[in-house]
Amino acid sequence: MNAKYARHLSVLGEEGQKKLSNATVYISRVGGVGGTAANYLARSGVGRLLLAHGGTLDAEYLNRWHLAHESDVGRPCVDVFKEEIARINSSVEVEVLGEHAKSIDDIKAFANEADVIIDAAPMFEERYNNNLLSQMLNIPMISGSMYAQEGYVMSFVPGETPCLSCLYPEKPEFWVDRHVFPALGTGPGIIGCLLANEAISYIAKGELQLKGKMLHYDLTDMDFNKLKIEKDHQCKVCSA
């Protein structure tokens, strides 16, 4: 086994590591949550990352974006991601879509070879597009998000589990842009680690620990709970 992954051996086995190196992961937004996931997936030796993220880097991202540094402010985000991931692990192939997941046609064309979707966008419209993509292409989606000191992670498998729209068919009215959520860096970091771990588990061992479950936390009192979520048989996305 490559020395970079020597400590994976008893956890994933050689076969699991090989599956990782052959896997493609699509990540929708690569910020505090998605960027943390991308970081750990790159370090784990995943074969290919498909990263969808538009815009340039703002200073306010620096409290939670693992892939960004002060000198990157003002640069196109996707350029920063490509450079940083190449520094972390040059074996990882990185493809970028310099736009958010706003068009289902665009992400369908970009992410159709993905083995798993990581949904980490700060806008519900993008998350609902990722959910639709998951259902259309029959690709599992691991979704993680947060607000202030609270957050959750869920794994959705088309045909087997509830989907995002089963659980939350509509967004909260106040969520009008990406500036609405307070965040310390730690919360998005935790979520991103959990997303990466779930993706690695799925790729290497075919196991999703959060299939049909929500892992919810509130760091205010370090309260972590695994909750059972239910399918909505009237869901317009997965039960139509």
């Binding site: 937004r29 910020g31 505090g32 949550v33 998605g34 980490a120 966008a121 700060p122 806008m123 519900f124 998350r127 993680g144 998000s145 947060m146 607000y147 609270e150 957050g151 959750y152 659980l167 939350y168 509509e170 967004k171 909260p172 969520w175 959520f181 965040a183 919360g187 998005p188 979520i191 929500m214 919810h216 709970n225 909750l227 059972k228 979520i229 239910e230």
Partner: peptide, 27 residues
């Protein structure tokens, strides 16, 4: 366990933990 029924139809015994969880999208 997720509540899927009308709140009036869900009986509580007085010792349960209730969690209200709002949709989030922060990252």
């Amino acid at each position: 366990e997720q509540v899927t029924d009308n709140f009036s139809n869900v009986n509580l015994h007085g010792h349960e933990n209730i969690r209200v969880i709002q949709a989030m999208a922060g990252g």
